[in-house]
Structure formats: structure tokens, C-alpha cells
């Protein structure tokens, strides 16, 4: 077996070791990379939040599970931080059962950091089954769909919910999603109730949602870990998004290296077989 044959027959576990090192080392060593230009969809998202008046309520849906946390938690934290810093009121809901606990974590950690008070500055209404029915219900009466929040408090009695009855009182809705939920929010909340919708999504979903951005059905889009990093940069508070960028950069370089080496080996083998 010659060198190139050995390269092509490389045990896949070596590839895995390379990826593991590419991710672990930059994070443990605290390597940070300078971020370049902010992509337009992230900038649009940021501008949409900036355009809200202090005290305005923002509805944030946590429609993801633990598996997507590495991409979506940094986004969620950055967006919640931005909203709280602009004195916006945050109302969280979840179409995924796992979203309740994830929202609770994000709200309590960022809220504590920002000195925000649960029930006054933010509320976690929790999970409600029914997906489309929930989206439609929020357009009629939020406290009908959620008579109580995730902690069992009466929704209508909370200070954060004062003057908030339905989408008509919420100038912006944000969907943090790892699945099909943005289509539901766009189709029902936006189309039926003219609710402004922005989304934070995993990178693999981006191509699905670009058409909605082009048509204006989405006012902004934070796309994957890179979007999270850009958002953190915009609010001048670096977190896991920016830190993850160095790991992602090196992992991408490792994959590109593997592809190039694989192709060199392939052509070398092809030439050898021709000769």
C-alpha cells in the first residue's frame, strides 16, 4: 500500500480526533478571533430591536431543545441581554416542551446579570402544546392561552404583562428555532395578525428562511453560531458565540484540509492507475 492509498484508507477515527482537537483547544485556550463585517440579516435583526421604544414588550419563543443549545443559547442570551439593556419587556413562550427549561436558564442568568426582575421585566410563560393553535391563540388573548406562567403565577396579574393582550400590543416577535416553527410564526402570526417576526436559527436552516427575509416576512435573521457571534459583537458583550467562532474556524479549516488532501490522494491514485 503506497502513501496515497494509506491516506485514502485513513481510519475515520483520526478524522474525529482532528475535529475534537479543533474544537476543544481554541475553547480551552480562550482563543478569540476578530469578527469582520456583520452580515445584513443580523444587522437587520439588531436594528429591529433598536427601533423599539423602551418599555415595549417583545415576545420570544424558545422553540429548540438541548441538542441545539450550542448554537441557539448564545443567540438567546445576546438577544435577551440586548432587550433588557434597552429596557424592553420580555415575554417568553415555547412550542417545544424543552423550551421552558431553556428559557428559564437564559432569563435567570442574563436577568440576574442585568438586575432584571422576574415578573416585572421578563416572564417565562412556558410550553403550551398545540403549535398552530397556540400561535393563533396568542393573536386573540395571551392570558387565555397562558392563564398562568411557568412558575404558576397568574399571567394577567404580572406587571410585565400590563397592557399586553395580544400581538396587537407586541411590536416584535422573535422565534429561536431548531425546527419548523418559524414557518408557523410567519404563516399565522405574521400573515394573519401582521405581527413583525424575526428569527434566530441553526445554521443548517438558513437556506430555508432566506426567501422569507427577501420577501420581508422576516424582519431579521440571526444565523447559527456566526450570527450569535455577530450579535454579541453588536451589543459589545462577547460570550460563547464569539468564543465558539475560533473553534468553528479551525474546525472548518480542518475539514477543508481533509477535502484537499483527499482530492490530491484521489488524483495521485488515478494517475498511478492510468500509468
Amino acid at each position: 500500500m503506497n502513501f496515497w492509498e494509506r491516506i485514502l484508507a485513513l481510519d475515520r477515527r483520526w478524522v474525529y480526533v482532528g475535529i475534537a482537537l479543533a474544537v476543544i483547544l481554541p475553547i480551552t485556550l480562550g482563543l478569540e478571533m476578530t469578527l469582520g463585517t456583520t452580515s445584513p440579516p443580523t444587522q437587520d435583526f439588531y436594528d429591529a430591536v433598536e427601533a423599539l421604544k423602551p418599555g415595549a414588550p417583545v415576545l420570544i419563543a424558545f422553540d429548540y431543545g438541548p441538542s441545539s443549545m450550542p448554537e441557539l443559547d448564545p443567540q438567546a442570551k445576546a438577544i435577551v441581554r440586548h432587550c433588557l439593556s434597552r429596557k424592553l419587556r420580555i415575554i417568553c413562550v415555547a412550542l417545544w416542551p424543552t423550551g421552558t427549561a431553556l428559557a428559564r436558564d437564559v432569563l435567570s442568568s442574563v436577568g440576574e446579570d442585568m438586575g432584571a426582575v422576574d415578573g416585572e421585566d421578563y416572564v417565562n410563560l412556558g410550553f403550551k402544546a398545540g403549535s398552530v393553535a397556540v400561535i393563533l391563540g396568542l393573536g386573540e388573548d395571551i392570558s387565555d392561552v397562558y392563564p398562568q406562567d411557568a412558575e404558576g403565577r397568574k399571567t394577567s396579574g404580572l406587571a410585565v404583562m400590563k397592557g399586553v393582550k395580544s400581538y396587537a400590543d407586541v411590536p416584535l416577535m422573535v422565534d429561536l428555532a431548531a425546527g419548523n416553527s418559524p414557518f408557523g410564526w410567519i404563516s399565522y402570526a405574521h400573515e394573519r395578525y401582521h405581527q413583525k417576526v424575526a428569527a434566530g436559527i441553526t445554521a443548517v436552516m438558513a437556506t430555508d428562511l432566506y426567501p422569507y427575509l427577501q420577501t420581508g416576512q422576516l424582519v431579521g435573521l440571526v444565523n447559527g453560531l456566526k450570527g450569535a457571534a455577530e450579535y454579541e459583537d453588536l451589543i459589545h458583550h462577547h460570550g460563547m458565540g464569539v468564543r465558539g467562532m475560533s473553534a468553528q474556524s479551525i474546525a472548518h479549516l480542518w475539514i477543508i484540509f481533509l477535502v484537499i488532501v483527499g482530492n490530491i490522494a484521489y488524483f495521485a491514485m488515478r494517475r498511478a492507475s492510468r500509468e
Binding site: A20, S68, G262, N263, Y266
Partner: peptide
């Protein structure tokens, strides 16, 4: 559940690398 789910999803990074290396040929 959170670490187990995250671990399973993280496998994707390893599989993307190995699939790219194995099949991405010009």
C-alpha cells in the same frame, strides 16, 4: 438529557468531517 442530546447532535461535526473526506472528490 441536555448533555446526552447535545452529544448526539455534536456527532454531526465528526460525521460531516469524515463524510467530506471520504466522498468529496472533484
Amino acid at each position: 438529557q441536555v448533555p446526552l442530546d447535545a452529544t448526539m447532535f455534536a456527532l454531526l461535526a465528526f460525521f460531516v468531517a469524515s463524510a467530506a473526506f471520504r466522498t468529496f472528490r472533484a
